[in-house]
Design a protein around this nucleic acid. Sequence first.
DNA 1: TATGAATGAGATTTCATTCAT
DNA 2: CATGAATGAAATCTCATTCAT
Lengths: 219, 219, 219, 219
Amino acid sequence: MDTAATEGVEGHRRVTRPRADAVRNRERIVAAAREMFVETGADAPLDEIARRAGVGNATVYRHFADRAELVRQVVLSVTERIAGQAETARAEEPDAFAALRRFVHAAADERIGALCPVLSDGFDQNHPALLAARDRLEKSIEGLMEQAREEGMLRADVAVGDLMVALSQLSRPLPGIPCPDIDRFVHRHLQLFLDGLQAPARSELPGSAATFEDLQRKP
Amino acid sequence: MDTAATEGVEGHRRVTRPRADAVRNRERIVAAAREMFVETGADAPLDEIARRAGVGNATVYRHFADRAELVRQVVLSVTERIAGQAETARAEEPDAFAALRRFVHAAADERIGALCPVLSDGFDQNHPALLAARDRLEKSIEGLMEQAREEGMLRADVAVGDLMVALSQLSRPLPGIPCPDIDRFVHRHLQLFLDGLQAPARSELPGSAATFEDLQRKP
Amino acid sequence: MDTAATEGVEGHRRVTRPRADAVRNRERIVAAAREMFVETGADAPLDEIARRAGVGNATVYRHFADRAELVRQVVLSVTERIAGQAETARAEEPDAFAALRRFVHAAADERIGALCPVLSDGFDQNHPALLAARDRLEKSIEGLMEQAREEGMLRADVAVGDLMVALSQLSRPLPGIPCPDIDRFVHRHLQLFLDGLQAPARSELPGSAATFEDLQRKP
Amino acid sequence: MDTAATEGVEGHRRVTRPRADAVRNRERIVAAAREMFVETGADAPLDEIARRAGVGNATVYRHFADRAELVRQVVLSVTERIAGQAETARAEEPDAFAALRRFVHAAADERIGALCPVLSDGFDQNHPALLAARDRLEKSIEGLMEQAREEGMLRADVAVGDLMVALSQLSRPLPGIPCPDIDRFVHRHLQLFLDGLQAPARSELPGSAATFEDLQRKP
DNA sequence: TATGAATGAGATTTCATTCAT
DNA sequence: CATGAATGAAATCTCATTCAT
């Protein structure tokens, strides 16, 4: 009560300032979780995540109500970092397809593939914060693809969802195989896939172009 | 298999009954397991697999010593079916790249993607029966790729391991997303990837070409 | 499959005959749970219940999907036994109030008090099997009270819910106090309460008469 | 209390500040705990109690060494309030049985029933402060009962422990059922029970009369 | 032989209690 | 002194595997 009052004097901050060590712990937990998801898969034991983060297991539950919330934070965090990569690539690369190439490889390095296994079971794809981050990402990629098409560098029959799904799949960790090993291949295969995206089309694509909504829709 | 034959040799009891229902049970179990691995992932409960196969859980253990052995049989079964597809494609298609395209799509339909989650933990990639099946598959694909390269339809810097890894990744089920939904995309993305494999190369590939040995080697 | 066929020859029984030891285990678990609920309260650890029943903890979960279902079975079991007591009392006692007295004491001996802690949290009062058992019990008690009123032995302003709630409350275990100790008092207090039920009324009762529906209705 | 006084004697710092807010906090905590015990049961989470009291959880531990001490304070507080009710009733009511009736209903309103679930496990019934409060209460009730017996309004075979146990049991909250609902019945049943206490006895009571010592004795 | 039942080890989650700000 | 954060111990529940019919 006293401290809160003291705080209130200077603060527009919510109520009380979040403690420095608590913030650090929270970040460490998210980082450890992302690593574990990449290595072990989406069902990595929470106790192990806590151990890696250097905290007790209950501390994880102080920061995240349950496993689902931790997963959501990891997804959110990675999505935001990737959106940043997309924006940087767009700003710094000379042409749109070059920006797409750079984004794709950067997203792989950010472990976008780790998000896939994580989408299991009861994952709420429609959480507000997540939708916002996705929207931001979608806008960037869609802009890049539009421009690349105009520049004649991208075949007309692929959509943003096609790119995102393939990118995620190709950079997914192979469970039980350590990252350095799989990383040897990932960038090769992304490069091959990007080559396939360049016009002109060699073959007719089956199915319909995938959009971001397709990825969000749960059955 | 062995036991049934041996039994027939010496047995006066029940004479030459090859245990038709036991064989059928075994097949049903493998089929159910493959389905579950595709739908639910590699950690599908054995009890559920047994239920789907219409047998008691203990029956699974009569046929397969433990979970690892069941997984191995599924992998073996799928590998053999895929090898068959490769041989058929080679025999029936006019040119090698057309055969590769056909094989790739056929393998996706055979749920080659189900094999990936299966690589988890302590999976023994070097089991004799498995090595034989892989060898047979490798021979076919390698032959097809060699020929396609000679026909000027395949860029020179990709190896059999590149194709197999990318094929597996792109056709992996997205956990929590039902097969029909993901199937809508898989063939599109495989087609795009195949387009990227066709010469001439648009970009330089990073890393080194992947071989089958790369996939077998466990750390 | 074979055994099932063999079974089918003679059987109208459901599918397969429940194993003798499984039935015994199930009964032991319910009995142990009832004891524990009486002694420790409704949140008695399942592991402890399993230990008392002489089975592993997972066995409890084979018979009852979760804690709630076990609780429901205990409630059902006690309700049915008590309904039986009511019917016996009605048949064997000379007058209705004597039958009520006998029923009340018998219900206490059957640990009707154990049912109270059981009403906690998410207990589904409206489960079909439970409603049926309650209905049977209600019919008996209502009949007894009606008759007792006609015989001039029961004041007119009490209803079946009044009796059941008071009976349950007065025979509830005092947590932390062993049964033998509390049992010393229970029958005294029930007797006093029954004396209060006999006409003529000494005082006016506040509130409204409680019915069985009052007890079932959840907020 | 002690500390505040001592502080005032020697302290130049802050002079005679009796820590008004600390006292208020302590009272709020006890009140919140009593409410929670009534609503949720004896195992109400301390964090929730703290939240209701509008303090941090650690503040609870500043005032009460552990959960047992908080529980003891709640019991003590309720006991003292009830003792007060008994004395008031004795002073203001015309005859002893009327005073008993008034006391019983007042005690129910003071949530004497909340004390029962609280007696669980390792509750130390023999703590000095508690014994004193009980003694005070016992004296009052015993006096009332003695006098009522002399006035021919109370059957001879009931003792103070009988009344206290029955009163506590009948006013216990039914877990999972909100107070307003159960309160509808409590006063009815207390009234019925009191009617049963009035002479002449309709039936012979089993067991022996309960005294306060019976309630205190732990096994 | 095939089956339902049983089991212990492990995962998630909660909570009384201690620590650091 | 008061607080939010941290913690380990315990409770619920799941599942691969073994046992008994």
